[in-house]
Amino acid sequence: MPTISRKHTARQWSGAWLLALFLGVIGLIFSGSAYADENVLKKASLFPLWSPQAQFAGYYVALDKGLYARHGLEMTIISGGPERSPVESLQKGEADFAVLWLVDALQQRAGGGKLINVAQLVQRSSTMLVARKSSGIRTPADLAGRKVGVWEGVLGIPARIFLNNYHLQVKEIPQSYTVNLFLRGGVEVVSAMWYNEYHTLMLSGLDSDELNVFALHDYGVDLPEDGLYTLAETLRQDPELVAAFVRASLEGWDYAFTHPDEAIDIVLKYMREAKVPANRIHQRWMLARMEELIKHKNSPRSFGRLAQSDYEAVGEVLRKHGLLPVVPPYQVFVGETDAVE
């Protein structure tokens, strides 16, 4: 692929992105759906990290409320799940966009995958380690020698960094996508997402005062999680498609946060279609937590944007722990330049 042309396109796209965003907002205010009607809808697809749940509410809301269509997209959301990898789907061309963790995308990039961060949603780490108080685990040091459930692959990275930071030797048990092993006493410590597994523990009859929670961002492990990615190729070929997708997705999130009940109804609908257990209360919790994670108030983090400082900090942490040989330049990673590999 010619480098120059890609660079040129990226610059053009950058300007176009801002302009289009501006025009889009204006258009949304003044002309409603007129904008979309004038264009033939472009096909696009999204592969979320997981099966439908409120973690991806913004996309499902955008789809359901016709926001993608309004931005000229005929959107498909591919149902994710434990058996499928979003990165593979991107690379195989099954999906144009995917929801990935920043850490995952960085590692993929280091492995040669040409992934571009087009938006960063979850601005901080939501991963936590949870132990029963009755197990006597009160401080990180108490984890030593314990059976700790850790997700395999990229989802386990924050926990491993945390354990490394404290130089803890634990019996690491690969953790599945349920907390049942912990509930049945198979492990003493369980990995949990604040927006998901932590609440599942509550919904399994555990009270928060029975638990000791190590929220990793409180212990200096603060890795932004969900972001929207596409292949550099896709961005190069159709930057407007990417821009429209990002805009519609962010609008979708915005709508979900201002209309949480409707958003949950929409999410539940897709969950039922995908035949995954659908629990309104759990989804409500999840959406509320996602809002906190996405609307991170602290500057320089802003809605939908990956802050350069965050990016560099994460890169540094990964590099330090030997999880990343080199940190690609921020501008390249967010597609503002296709300069040098």
Partner: peptide, 16 residues
């Protein structure tokens, strides 16, 4: 190995 049915019995060594 990561399935609940396997892992729980494996880790707790109990029939369940």
């Amino acid at each position: 190995l990561l399935k609940d049915w396997y892992q729980i019995a494996r880790e707790t060594e109990k029939a369940d």
